[in-house]
């Protein structure tokens, strides 16, 4: 037990990302409103993006930009001094995909509301079964 606590404290960000991911999963499964489910889906996505960006982070690393670009060819840049920009670029795509997913899902929710006059999942299912 005494050697387990430093292990948890040293990787505190991963544990908090897991908590955030479980909040999103709970909202997707247990909430009854369609908009609440979409908010849960976005929280889930951002927790995964946080995990990936956090992998590329390093202690004392600077932002991955060359400060004086006019002399860029004359000195050697050491990759150990800046954070890894590869997860950033991959997750940039994931953010754009997530906002387009949100737009399509909200458009479908508006269409469902126009037809059934409710956003609650159980009422929609009851009216679907009643037909």
């Amino acid at each position: 037990m005494s050697e387990l606590i430093p292990l948890i404290v040293a990787k505190y960000n991963y544990w908090l990302y897991i908590i955030l991911m479980m909040i999103g999963l709970y909202a997707m499964i247990a909430k009854n409103n369609l908009v609440k489910k979409l908010v849960g889906m976005n929280i889930f996505q951002t927790s995964i993006i946080l995990f990936y960006v956090s992998i590329g982070c390093k202690k004392g690393g600077t932002i991955p930009i060359i400060h004086h670009g006019i002399h860029a060819g004359r000195h050697v840049v050491d990759p150990a001094h800046y954070v890894n920009p590869l997860p950033h670029v991959l997750m940039l795509t994931a953010i754009v995909v997530s906002v387009s997913t949100l737009g399509v899902a909200l458009a479908l929710a508006v269409k469902i509301y126009n037809r059934y006059k409710t956003l609650e999942e159980d009422e929609i299912l009851a009216r679907l079964r009643a037909k």
Binding site: I49, C57, P64, V83, H88, M91, L92, V96
Partner: peptide
């Protein structure tokens, strides 16, 4: 804070 400035302004 995590030095991902491009992701930060996109977000």
């Amino acid at each position: 804070i995590m030095a991902a400035v491009d992701v930060a302004f996109t977000e």
